[in-house]
Amino acid sequence: MKTTRKTADKLRYSRVILKELVKTDFQLRYQGSFLGVAWSVLKPLMLFCVMYVVFVRFLKFSDGTPTFPMVLLLGIGLWNFFSEATTMGLNGITGRGDVLRKVDFPKYIIVVSATVGSLISLAINMGVVLVFCIFTHVQFTWNVLWLPLNFLQLYILALGMALLLATMNVFFRDIQHIWEVVMQALFYATPIIYPLSLVVTQLGPKGVIIQKLMLLNPTAQIIQDIRHNLIAPDTTPTVWTMWNGSPLQFIPLLLTLLILWLGAYVFHKHSAKFAEVL
């Protein structure tokens, strides 16, 4: 009975700490800016406008459908979440060294709070995307019922990477610079600003194989799945259609779970040394 009560009190205490950290991080993110939280909407919209002009209007990137601008906007919003969640999580422990030395609480809460803050921004961005979809007469299908699972996988992937990166960054500060380069490479290796069909157009028959390999990347698989289920189920290829019937279609899901497990394991193993190192 005492053990159960002690566990319940610890969970309640952890929830309070998490809530306060999320609130503080979200407020500090826009502190001192004139538009405040509106930047969580304006930033991806401005980025979308730049990429739309450069890649759609100027370079003529398109999948040949009127929904491509919405597909582009959705991809940018999803990528911004993954990029922000992993980057904020990476710096979470090193940025809270003073708190770790003064307050005793589960250290994973710091990384979780960083990713939850990014999740709030994602929710705002998805609301904007939904409004645009309605105004552009996107035809929704029953595939939207899969979206909660898609977003859950995206969050699990971001959290796993954030836990792993946060641990590595405590001991090796070069990680944050390496991760910037990796993210830049991953951005262009993921069909965000260009349609996946462009790979075949540019590379011919070999492009089909490269398409399939690209979709084994969890970020590409998730972004394509969300685009497929929300906006364009008929024109958005996914790992389930490209690898239909093959066990390889489950590789992105397995990688996502592996990254979460690895991140949690490494974080738990080394978290006791954080305060000492910092």
Rank of each mutant, 00 (worst) to 15 (best):
T65P: 06
Y52W: 12
K43Q: 12
L78E: 00
S83A: 13
S62L: 11
R29P: 12
P44I: 03
S40M: 14
L28V: 10
S40N: 13
R57F: 10
F34H: 04
T67W: 01
N80L: 15
S40C: 14
T67A: 10
T67D: 08
S40D: 10
M46P: 04
V71A: 07
V53L: 10
T67F: 08
W39C: 03
F48E: 05
N80E: 14
I76F: 13
T67V: 10
V54E: 09
K43I: 12
R29D: 14
T65L: 07
L74Q: 05
V71I: 15
G36A: 12
S62K: 08
V50F: 11
M70S: 14
Q27T: 11
S83I: 05
F48R: 04
M70E: 14
F55G: 04
L35P: 01
E84T: 11
T67Y: 08
I76R: 05
L42D: 07
M46D: 04
L47E: 13
V37A: 03
V56R: 00
S40E: 13
F34N: 02
G32N: 06
V71N: 06
Q27N: 11
L47Y: 13
Y30E: 00
E84K: 07
F58N: 08
C49T: 13
Q31T: 13
F81S: 01
V50S: 07
F55L: 04
Y52G: 08
Q31M: 11
F68I: 04
F82V: 12
Y52M: 09
S62H: 10
K43R: 10
G32E: 04
E84M: 07
F58S: 12
S83D: 11
M51C: 10
V56D: 02
P66H: 05
I76N: 06
V54Y: 09
Q31E: 14
F61V: 04
V53Y: 01
